[in-house]
Nucleic acid binder design. Sequence first.
DNA 1: GCATTAACCACAG
DNA 2: CTGTGGTTAATGC
Length: 226
Amino acid sequence: MKPDCKFCKMKSPAAELLKPDEIDTLEQNCAQVKFSKGETIFREGTFATNIVYLRAGLVKIHMKGPIGEKILRLNKAPAYLGLPTTFGDRVNHYSATAITESEVCFISLDAFKNFIYSNGNFAYEIIMDLCRSELADFQRFTNLSQKQLPGRIAELLLCFSNHLFKSNAFELPLSITELANFVSASRESVSRQFSELSRLGIIELTHDKKLTILRKDMLDKISTNG
DNA sequence: GCATTAACCACAG
DNA sequence: CTGTGGTTAATGC
């Protein structure tokens, strides 16, 4: 699909700083693709030949661990999906899979590099973006490794509610098994934890994975004391 | 010891 | 893929 970068409403903060001639270059070096739920956008172990930008949708970033699959984070549009995997090495160190229908722009690596060399403001935005996600990751991984399971689950639900969906009611974007891979726990333990939270009246979870947070105050407490 | 936490196994829906 | 029950190893009081 032919992109229309000039008038794109989903430009990244960095791309907003590109000059008109650079936008033209971007347009000529960018391909827009739709992915449906469950489709792989790029796969661990394959060559990373493009910059991948998520302009719509929700994506999970995941990699194979010694035991099994590990979900590293969820990315909501707008976001670059593969900067570390593209600049850090020639092969992808992780995979990206669409969780909802998604729209992705593949940008030629050379064009993107040239923007970084020639446009300092652009480069600065990219660095900020990378730093913010590194800080968020540091926070998440220390919390993950030091909180007990109830705290990890509570934190995850609060994150969904506060940042991802900005609502107290939402549909769980991942299966229980995936949630377990996300918080580094067994699927059985996660399942039990949800039962427990329901039993205590803190959440309500229907069979079609619609979740409502009834007692956010309790979740906050569990997340903190985790 | 005794209690708690969470993984592993098995089996049913 | 989920949910539950039984069992078990590790850890803390």
